[in-house]
Design a protein around this nucleic acid. Structure first.
Length: 202
DNA sequence: AGCACGATTAACT
DNA sequence: GTTAATCGTGCTC
């Protein structure tokens, strides 16, 4: 299947988008071969009002992509060494995105292994900066269209995750963010059992 | 100055 | 086997 998710998929409420991105397949084309995996963890960041969102300070050069068309990749650098991958949501002009925090790798395992040298396979993609490292995602992919099958990075349909296998929690790593944003249950992840089922997918 | 983190330690069961 | 604490790193504002 190389039919990407339609742009309308992203043009909706960010929390719904984060939830429905679970089980979808993230595909990276690297030197003509595919690396892919199923999304198992994601967080919603929603607008200038959300004080955990990068857009809380208004539009800057860094976060400009979030203000643009939905279905595009917002890739940014942090902590002096880590790249983060987000999918832009909502209508054009509204700054919101879903941070992709973890995937279950399915294709291109040899490439992932070479991008994550010396790491056990369980730790290849189980964190937001780990998955970007595993898939060789960096700032060059900022603004990339995730709805275009010719992009080096896009999203495909995957596995349907049953509603009762989706868990939520507050978002990770928010530091000084004030309430109520600190405690908003906008992190969505797939239960461990369901990940094992995903592991059997091809 | 302040990070939407990860690797490495060091202390525990 | 686990959790808690620490700090490197360099880009954005």
């Amino acid at each position: 299947m190389t039919t990407p998710l339609p742009r309308t998929f992203f043009q909706k409420d960010t929390c719904s988008a984060a939830r429905s991105l679970l089980g979808k397949r993230l595909v990276r084309i690297l030197d003509g071969s595919r690396i892919s995996g199923l999304i198992v963890e994601a967080e919603a960041y929603n607008g200038e009002e959300d004080l955990a969102c990068h857009a809380r300070v208004g539009k800057t050069r860094r976060n400009a992509v979030m203000y643009g068309s939905p279905g595009h990749a917002y890739v940014y650098f942090t902590y002096g060494m880590h790249w983060m991958l987000n999918a832009v949501t909502r209508e054009e002009g509204f700054p919101a995105a879903v941070l992709l925090r973890a995937i279950h790798p399915l294709e291109g395992l040899d490439l992932i292994a070479s991008n994550r040298p010396g790491r056990p396979s369980a730790e290849w993609c189980n964190g937001p900066a780990k998955l970007t490292q595993a898939m060789a995602i960096n700032g060059e992919l900022n603004g990339c269209d995730l709805c275009n099958p010719h992009s080096p990075l896009f999203l495909e349909s995957g596995l349907t995750i049953p509603e009762n296998s989706i868990l939520t929690s507050p978002r990770i790593g928010l530091g000084n963010t004030p309430e109520p944003w600190l405690s908003k249950p906008w992190r969505y992840y797939v239960s461990k059992n369901e990940v094992l089922i995903a592991a059997k997918a091809r």
